[in-house]
Simulated scan of single mutants.
Amino acid sequence: MTERMPVLKEPSPKRRSNRRLLGVIYALFIVLLLVLFFRSSLSKISEVTVSGGRFASESEILAASGVEPGDPFFWPAADAIAGRVEKLEPVASAVVRKTFPGKLHIEVTEFPAVAYGLTADGAITAILSNGKELPIGADAVVDRPVLRGWNGREEDKLKLVDALSLLPDDLLADFSEIAPYPSDAYPDRIRIYTRTRFEIITAVSLLEEKAETIRAVIETQEPGSMTLLLADRYVPYTEEGGDGEGKAPDAENTGKQD
């Protein structure tokens, strides 16, 4: 009896070639989508806004950023744009936020003004805590002391600016004018007039140390003169026979305290 041979199944065709073809198609499709996306308006900056600037104008910040509507949204990186803005003299730090689609916001933090100056033609300048001096126009609100008599004393003025930057904001706002008043013992001695009608003789090197004493006298005493050097001395204007309108203390009494 003849035995029947079993029917052998034909091997199924390998599907690797099909998978490779599908992979190539998918890759081409993704590339096409990317090309279409980057050529569309969705990949561009549509709006740039700025906040936080007082001494640096919006136009200066935008120019420093190097970006404008129509530029690529994803390049350059936010940190790179912020680094450009931080090169502006008044800017202490900058943060750039990108919001898809197309919105870019630049927020700056500036060095605070600790004093003001006057140019020869009467223009007001803001003196920032980093020592930079910037013109701000004649209509600016002067809420910090005006520095007078510091021409030719740039190094001393920078030390004063550093000292002022360490003072509490409310105390700094009460100072109306600061002028150099050097002596042999205190080359950095200064004279301060306040908006609360006090006159203070102290030194730049002692200003931070004497800040709380100044505050305490202003808050609890009537207007008068203070000498805050090696020893502290306060005299109300009424005892000096003055009317309290910024009368200068006797140079013999204030100048020889040291």
Rank of each mutant, 00 (worst) to 15 (best):
3 E>V: 06
11 P>S: 12
15 R>L: 15
15 R>V: 15
17 S>E: 15
17 S>L: 09
20 R>F: 11
21 L>Q: 14
22 L>C: 13
27 A>D: 01
29 F>V: 09
31 V>I: 13
31 V>E: 01
32 L>E: 01
37 F>K: 05
38 F>C: 02
38 F>D: 07
44 K>S: 15
45 I>R: 08
46 S>F: 07
54 R>Y: 14
57 S>Q: 04
59 S>C: 11
60 E>W: 01
62 L>V: 14
63 A>H: 12
66 G>S: 06
69 P>C: 07
80 A>V: 14
81 I>G: 02
82 A>N: 01
84 R>Y: 06
85 V>D: 13
88 L>R: 10
90 P>W: 04
94 A>Q: 10
96 V>R: 00
97 R>D: 13
102 G>T: 06
106 I>N: 04
113 A>C: 09
116 Y>E: 00
118 L>V: 00
118 L>W: 00
121 D>A: 08
122 G>N: 03
124 I>Y: 05
125 T>V: 09
127 I>N: 08
127 I>K: 05
128 L>V: 01
130 N>M: 05
132 K>F: 04
137 G>R: 00
138 A>W: 01
142 V>L: 08
142 V>P: 08
143 D>S: 13
144 R>A: 04
147 L>F: 10
151 N>E: 11
159 K>D: 08
161 V>R: 12
162 D>C: 09
163 A>S: 13
164 L>K: 05
164 L>A: 07
165 S>P: 09
168 P>H: 09
169 D>P: 08
174 D>F: 11
174 D>K: 10
175 F>P: 02
177 E>N: 02
180 P>T: 00
181 Y>P: 01
184 D>Y: 03
186 Y>K: 03
191 R>C: 02
196 T>E: 15
198 F>L: 05
199 E>V: 15
201 I>W: 02
207 L>G: 10
207 L>F: 02
210 K>L: 03
210 K>F: 02
210 K>H: 09
213 T>F: 07
215 R>V: 06
215 R>D: 08
221 Q>V: 00
222 E>A: 12
222 E>D: 14
222 E>P: 13
224 G>K: 05
225 S>H: 11
226 M>P: 04
228 L>D: 06
228 L>I: 01
229 L>I: 07
229 L>A: 07
232 D>P: 03
233 R>A: 12
235 V>W: 07
240 E>N: 14
241 G>L: 02
241 G>W: 04
242 G>I: 00
243 D>S: 10
244 G>D: 03
246 G>Q: 06
252 E>N: 10
255 G>E: 05
257 Q>C: 06
258 D>H: 10
